[in-house]
Design a binder for these strands. Sequence first.
RNA 1: GCAGUGGGCGGGAUGACCGCUGGCGUUCCUUUAGGAAGGUUGGAGGAAAGUCCGGGCUCCGCAGGACAGGAUGGUCGAUAACGUCGACCGGCCGCGAGGCUAGGGAAAGUGCAACAGAGAGUAAACCGCCGAACGGCUGCUCGAUCUUGGUCGAGUGGUGCGUGGUAAGGGUGAAACGGUGCGGUAAGAGCGCACCAGCGACCGAGGUGACUCGGCUGGCUUGGUAAACCCCAUCCGGAGCUAGACCAAACAGAGUGAAGUGGUGCGACCUCGUCGUGCCCGCCAAGCGGUCCGUACGGCAGAAACACUCGGGUAGGUCGCAAUUGAGGCGGCGAGCAAUCGUCGUGCACAGAUAGAUGGUCGUCGUCGAUGUCGCUUAUGCGAGGUCGGCACAGAACCCGGCUUACAAGCCCACUGCCAGC
RNA 2: GGGGUUGUGGUGUAACUGGCAGCAUGACGGACUUUUAAUCCGUUCGGCGAGAGUUCGAAUCUCUCCGGCCCCA
Length: 113
Amino acid sequence: MNQLFPKRYRVLRGEDFTQILRRGNCAADGMLVLYARASRSPSAPRLGVTIPKKTGSAVLRNHWKRLIREAYRTQREQLPPGFDFVVRPKKGAQPNAAAIRRSLIKLAKRGAG
RNA sequence: GCAGUGGGCGGGAUGACCGCUGGCGUUCCUUUAGGAAGGUUGGAGGAAAGUCCGGGCUCCGCAGGACAGGAUGGUCGAUAACGUCGACCGGCCGCGAGGCUAGGGAAAGUGCAACAGAGAGUAAACCGCCGAACGGCUGCUCGAUCUUGGUCGAGUGGUGCGUGGUAAGGGUGAAACGGUGCGGUAAGAGCGCACCAGCGACCGAGGUGACUCGGCUGGCUUGGUAAACCCCAUCCGGAGCUAGACCAAACAGAGUGAAGUGGUGCGACCUCGUCGUGCCCGCCAAGCGGUCCGUACGGCAGAAACACUCGGGUAGGUCGCAAUUGAGGCGGCGAGCAAUCGUCGUGCACAGAUAGAUGGUCGUCGUCGAUGUCGCUUAUGCGAGGUCGGCACAGAACCCGGCUUACAAGCCCACUGCCAGC
RNA sequence: GGGGUUGUGGUGUAACUGGCAGCAUGACGGACUUUUAAUCCGUUCGGCGAGAGUUCGAAUCUCUCCGGCCCCA
């Protein structure tokens, strides 16, 4: 099972972020907020992570980002292909690896469909 | 043993699997650029933080003096520099080890001090004390006069009524213009004297110096506040790695800029002044724009192939940028009380992202706390293995030197006071 | 990365030439009213973001931290 996470599976350009956030579908639960938009290259789903400064200290923000990326990396094949996703933590939520993994799949299917 | 003071160390270890990212090889694909696979080797801190100071570096052509503005403020030293560090001096606190200290100037000037209090700054008279001096009222004595008990004058008492003297005592306050004693006085007072305290000048000794010690003399006493204005001394050009250089891509251009800058007459309007107009003068620099940041001066280079303003476009890549030479580390020797410096040796050394890497999961060990079991033990306690929970503060973004703040457990060194024992 | 501004009862705000920290609203109680609202009267809660320093005295001056908000790129 391919669990790599190279740069082609990531949203990198600032313009892409604004497009996904402005034009994409939004889905949220108590843990995450997810934006989804049909991508131009339909093969692989791409991920971008946004952590607002109000989340907390730099250590806490890094922790959130790593957990979200890890959840995406380990279960990328279960996500709907042909979409770009931008994910950020829900305000007030506490980071938890298992909950983020469950929430990511649920929200991705809802946002794509 | 108890209590305490100062300083330092430390920042869990290790394994498996799955990842991210820099460097260097290998193989494959590809027209170049580049892409893919796999290998190997590196990958957060003592504070990376706050951004409170100081530098390096870069640009402003060069980095001017003055004013303004800001910063610092015992002395000597250390340093690339500092508001940092070291040693020492003075003051305050502590029994002590030690701690704190923006600590120049208040006999240059200006200002401020609520409430209370009589008085708060070239001191002041509320109570109290005094009755010296002047006046009022009044008693007595003497003299003059005459309307014979009044008037005037002198002397001597009383009163403390008015003017007044007095800062010893009371009381107020954070602070009231030295303290004690004797003299002195109407009462008092540095008013005088003696001693003491304090300040200044001078002299001597010690110290590089801040300053310390001693002597002598004098004013006889000049209060607090400058983290109030201020004065003095010293320092500071501005902006910052999105600095800045180059490449690529994209778009749309428009406007302004090298002579009226000066003097003077007349006219209009509401004065200053502005406008119009005539004359003189000037017209390759006295004007113009220019991150020498603010002000004026002065200096500098510049000019239509340039500069500025407005508008439009682009926010991609490479370098800066990773020890390849730096105020590096470690060790030895030497100088110094120390901060630190000199010298010699030493491959001792790999972070470098750019939507932003340095991680996730699962173990083993370590350590701390709670809990209960077994063994030894009178108890305290010691040892063994078990279960559960915890293991901080915190994440590089151009780089260094400091400061400040945050920080779990644990450990070490030096010193002080008290108690007990020898 | 750089810069600015701000912090005062539960809420909003004033005093900042250093000198007992006020005002409005809210809460509570009373009056009025059949009751509520409005109005009037009274009371209470009790606050200068934290810690040092200067000063006789600090919300105010100085320093160091903490938090909020905003701006530039």
